[in-house]
Design a protein around this nucleic acid. Sequence first.
DNA 1: GCCGTTTTCGGCCCGACTGTTTTCAGTCG
Length: 578
Amino acid sequence: MGRANDAVAAMLQEYADLLTVTGGEQFKTRVYEKAARAVAGHQVDVATLDAGGLRQIPGVGASIADKIAEYLHNGHLAAMDTLREQVSGGVLELTRIPTLGPKRAVQLHDELGVDSIDELRDAIVAGKLEGHRGFGARAAENILHGIEVLERSHGRVLLSAATAAAEQVVEVLRGVPGCLRCTWAGSLRRFRETVGDVDVLAAASEPGPLMDAFTRLPSVDDVLAKGATKSSVRLQGDLQVDLRVVPLASWGAALQYFTGSKPHNVRVREIAVRAGFKLSEYGLFRVEDGSLVASETEEVVYERLGLQWVPPPLREDRGEVEAAREGALPALVSAADIRGDLHTHTDLTDGVAPLAEMVAAARARGYEYYAVTDHAKNMPMQRMTDEKMLAQRRELRELASAGGPVLLHGTELNIGPDGEVDWPDEFLRGFDLCVASVHSHFTQPAEQLTRRLVRACENPYVTVLGHPTTRLIGKRPPLDADFDAVLAAAARTGTIVEINSFPDRLDLPDELILRAKRHGVRFAIDTDAHAPVHLDHLRYGIGTAQRGWLTADDVVNTWPIERLRACIETKRAAVARP
DNA sequence: GCCGTTTTCGGCCCGACTGTTTTCAGTCG
């Protein structure tokens, strides 16, 4: 089973949300939010910690440690139950709408009697918002837009949440006697950025015990269907998981079939038909006599059709079938190719772990190099100063001299409204590299946003363009910029474009990676880690890069440090200012 | 509620933007 940290963090965050909505002391709610982030980012499973161990977590004191212990012991929290009684569930739901915070959500609930997002939309459409203090026409419009953004993601969960659920299910099923193989297929195996439901595939000669174990998982909320070879459940948190059990002999054909995508499978089946075969989840069959040609592994199924085995992230009918037929599939970048991370944070800004701890985590991963890029000073809440940044650099140089990965001192600059960044050239020159990202003024007109991003690329000290679209999946749409112009500028100036691995970002998204590659840009697959555990998000960035057909050579953090440094210096020299 | 080269109380994440106001509350990063 997975770590208890995520459940505990969710509990603390909900507690903070409830305190906010009930008008609790703001510093108190902030402490619970901070503790939630610290618990989520803590390396040790909190379920294994005693009271003393819990209090070692930054931001966790006596009271919160007690609450965590109570939650782990009883599965719920008495204080939370009390708060929940005071708050209609609908109010928390309303606060999920962007631009609608706790205060106004409570107000809408009290004044309009709305208790859900649907009711709120109906009320706005019926004009019931008019005349209510603080809500004009513009506010109504923004709320409706927020609801739209929210609902576009409805029913889909982030790749990370789906992966965690799938790992749990597969781990249990692999332990069931008679289970010969078990893995997940579907869009999750293809690393789609969000997943509608999880498809789990198992091989066994006797499916019964697997079906029983599956439908009796502790995390199952509801059994939607239970049959001889196929069952569906809904887990806590509303994620649907389907299990199919097949004979071992059909494993490869079934895995191919259930991995999809549908358009990819249609193309592959067309090839089968033209060659006189029929392809189904049971195998590849000769049409004339119905004899089985291949089914045991995916590799042999593809091979018998005259195709290279197609890595799942490519199976979207974007030209991979033609490439596989010509033997021209790219050698995709993989986790083994990655030598370092170029975008990470510490507790000097909004990370939860000190520099030494982050560096130790990087060393444990066997990285050859590791960049620390805390937020620059134009983000007021971080209260960054030149002195703090220079002090961190001294500490980092000292850590570096003790061995381990080569440590690069960087920063995450803020790209201002006109494309300017936080510091003058002479200060920027002191960094080994700089990530630059948009953190404000998201709604500028397209031309302005485009110019702004292009100008950032033209800055010789901007090494990496961080999370370029700044979208938050299900929460904030991508910037309305002309990304072809931006990517062309990145290619022209030698600016590396980030693939941010954070599960709610995955930015660049795969379609833009494909376009960027055509422009000739180089990429960095970064984690943007704010805690040691976030370094593991790398796999989502890798999967996204694979969906963009990237090879190791396209990705600068697969390069040796010398080549990377030369690349940084080349840009600084080439676009050096007078 | 947490924390302390500020130390057992009194601070704590600050500033800008937005939409609504006529002086500011709410939200966000």
